[in-house]
């Protein structure tokens, strides 16, 4: 269980995290979402005392990180692709870490095996790909068999197999009763693995809820209809002020309930071949919620440059 209360972190005049409070429950994977620069990484660094906070506190089963005797047994953290020295071998990297918290070197080999790096255990980390470094970082997380796991974009750089592996791993860890906090920009992944969500923007909490609630509340919903009398149904709906978009053999009714369309059809003797409610994805919901909090926008290149003859 992680409890964060009123966490505030400033860098000069920038407020990176602004009185942020949330909880991460045991037995669940909690997704940590927010646009670039919204303060996810900063929050994680503050939680484990790497960055000094201006106010607020993060508690792990009621204790601040600084009070944990052998923290690797309580909290496993992955930030910035593992933070390993490029000149050290993978095994030595894990060995010094293990030694500092009284973890055996047998466990070092176990976790190397677990993340699939046994064959390269004696290679220098400098020769590793980004994905291999992430795996090494994960090995470090698992070293102390911690009750709490905090991961900052762990899927970054992993191949599809690795992404699936990490998803299964995190779900497995949560199923054993651990608290898992994971940030990611891969929202389709998040939809597959997260139970709860914490969404922040500009350092502030936007919402904290379960994934289904989040999608229900924020994603757009519409009704899809297939019918041989589609045009007459559409004009009936438009008379009632509904917004409809027509496809070749189906129509999408926005801002309407399936029941309303069904009744409208029945009343006017319109035959329906399909009537279904569609919900937007987690991505849709996320973009909707954070639209105001996005600080760094990309722009489509609308005008072609340099085409002068």
């Amino acid at each position: 269980m992680i409890t964060v209360e009123g966490l505030t972190k400033k860098y000069g005049s920038t407020i990176a995290v602004d009185s942020l409070s949330f909880t991460v429950k045991p037995g669940r994977v909690t997704g940590f979402l927010g646009p670039n620069g919204s303060g996810k990484s900063t929050t994680m660094r503050c939680m484990i005392g790497l960055d000094r906070v201006h106010s607020g506190i993060a508690l792990f089963d009621g204790k601040p990180y600084q009070e944990l005797k052998k923290p690797l047994h309580e909290v496993g953290t992955l930030l910035d692709a593992g933070n390993a020295h490029s000149g050290r071998t993978a095994r030595n990297h894990l060995r010094w870490l293990a030694m500092s918290n009284g973890v055996s070197s047998k466990r070092v080999d176990e976790v190397l095996e677990l993340v699939g790096l046994m064959d390269v255990a004696k290679k220098r980390v400098g020769q590793f790909s980004l994905g291999m470094k992430q795996r090494l970082g994960l090995a470090a997380v698992l070293l102390g068999d911690p009750k709490v796991v905090i991961l900052d974009e762990p899927a970054n750089g992993l191949d599809p197999e690795g992404i699936r592996w990490i998803r299964e791993m995190l779900k497995h860890l949560a199923s054993q009763g651990r608290s898992v906090l994971v940030s990611s920009h891969l929202l389709s992944e998040m939809a597959l693995m997260a139970d709860d969500l914490i969404v922040i923007g500009k350092g502030r909490l936007i919402t904290e809820c379960t994934v289904p609630d989040f999608v229900n509340q924020y994603a757009k919903k519409w009704v899809v209809v297939k019918s041989p009398q589609l045009t007459s149904l559409v004009s009936l709906a438009q008379e009632q002020g509904m917004h409809v978009s027509m496809g070749s053999n189906l129509a999408e009714f926005h801002g309407a309930e399936a029941a309303m369309i069904g009744e409208l059809a029945a009343k006017n003797n319109v035959v329906l071949h399909e009537l279904s409610t569609q919900t937007g994805s987690l991505e849709d919901a996320f973009l909707e919620v954070t639209a105001d909090a996005v600080q760094y926008h990309g722009h489509a290149e609308t005008q072609s440059k340099g085409v002068a003859s």
Binding site: R45, I48, P71, V75, T77, L79, N83, L97
Partner: peptide
């Protein structure tokens, strides 16, 4: 960061 995470 790992050093201080392992020993705050």
């Amino acid at each position: 960061r790992l050093t201080l995470a392992a020993n705050p």
